[in-house]
Design a binder for these strands. Sequence first.
RNA 1: GGCAUCGUGGCCGAGUGGCUAGGCAAGGCUCUGCAAAAGCUUGUACAGCGGUUCGAAUCCGCUCGAUGCCUCCA
Length: 493
Amino acid sequence: MQLFENQPLKIYNSLSGKKEVFEPLNQGYVGMYVCGPTVYSNVHLGNCRTFMSFDMIFRYLKHLGFKVRYVRNITDAGHLVDDAEDGEDKIAKKALLEKLEPMEVVQRYTVDFHNILDQFNFLPPSIEPTATGHIIEQIEIIKDILAKGYAYEVNGSVYFDVAIFNKTNEYGKLSGRKLEDMIANTRALAAQNEKKNPQDFALWKKAEPQHIMRWPSPWGDGFPGWHLECTAMSTKYLGETFDIHGGGMDLKFPHHECEIAQAEACYGHSPVRYWMHANMLTMNGKKMAKSTGNNILPGEIFSGENSILSKAFTPSVVRFFMMQAHYTSILDLSNDALIASEKGYQRLMEAVNTLPKLEVGPKTDFDIPSWKQLCYDAMNDDFNTPILIAQLFEAVKRINLVKEGKETITAADKALLKEHIDVFVFDILGLENERASGVDSNKLGGVVELLIQLRMEARANKDFATSDKIRDQLAAMGIQLKDGKEGTTFTLF
RNA sequence: GGCAUCGUGGCCGAGUGGCUAGGCAAGGCUCUGCAAAAGCUUGUACAGCGGUUCGAAUCCGCUCGAUGCCUCCA
């Protein structure tokens, strides 16, 4: 008996615009594809938010007992800079600027990406395929689409014929657009004369002589178009139809719309059962983007080296901050918001650390099974982590009440509570217990315990000058003493 | 201009046709030598204007505003 059998999960499907009961294609298995990063510069915090949302989703699906194959690609072939005839590969452009081999750039930023995600405590995806590793598959799909009449070749490039596709299918259904409107609103760009219509998109682009990244194809040397790699890789690893396709909201159009078109043209049916879109992280009310410079790097948060920040914040604090907002909502980053999250996170972790030390009693004043179900209900309702966190704070309150001696908990319920706190805080939200230091057993712990003892003696002698000096100077070093009923404890902050 | 999403108390941020979000900050109280921590407690918010309804912040319409997409973008 797996958890998912009695924890019905609802997912907001961007395609239908509704929350739907999640039923995977194959009982007990989930195929999930998420559009990964383009590795031509450092991953910024906005990118991280999307991947973190899907990391949480991956974690929860796994927790429910699904066998999940999570595919997140690395876009290392680059995308076109623009639609102009001399469109050059974005990665190649950057490489020329920095006088590096394209794959050197790819390697550098892929390593950076993995390093950052590791600090954020991401689970690795099941498969992390690269676009350049799937050129053959992409060429095969283009051949297929050409054979089925949904594409045309011009001068070594192949374009998807949106108008023909739209006769039998519905181009724009994901983003709520109609082809007629798009035609009416398209600006007349020069240099698109290869395409029959401006809405057509490239499946294969001819490589100009100076273009470094290039592969042979039936249409000559070139490189794949923007949207094809995701169709190729998702199909290869998850099949022609799979359960969940995720990505950032900004990919809905045109990227995901084109993926649908490619797959429907090729396979004759819709590729994805549940489309999920994570919303943007903004800063100063504006979307973070590499191109505008309105962004912040994770490293700058961890070090505090950014003008909007008053201090450094740990990866778990940032993760907690992001998990306090629903993944479909726009979230605005600010120093104040991070500070508030840091306080909340610390309070949560205090309680997590207190729980094992609680004394047990004859009865429990807190209905833990009901609380546990409320936590599941929150997650089952389209991964509502803000509600889950609200429930966790209910548990925090109860833990502190028991600590204060105002409520009691039985040994069995304490174990049950601990088990589920750990599940939700660590396994699902993916937080790390940065405050659970092993200080009790190390040298620092011994020194602090000694000082606490000296302070207790001073207090017993009403020598408050000495006791306050110990307390205040330790506080200045980031060690906070807390006088409680059972004596003095301390935490690092 | 088109499409989409959204506008919640000092700040962040859930939710919803009638009943509690939660966090942070603030005030009061308990505890304390004084603090801190912790606990209890207070605040009565849903852009504006109409409409539907016994009842709407929640549904509908309009207005204003914000953001995203429409060109690579998580």
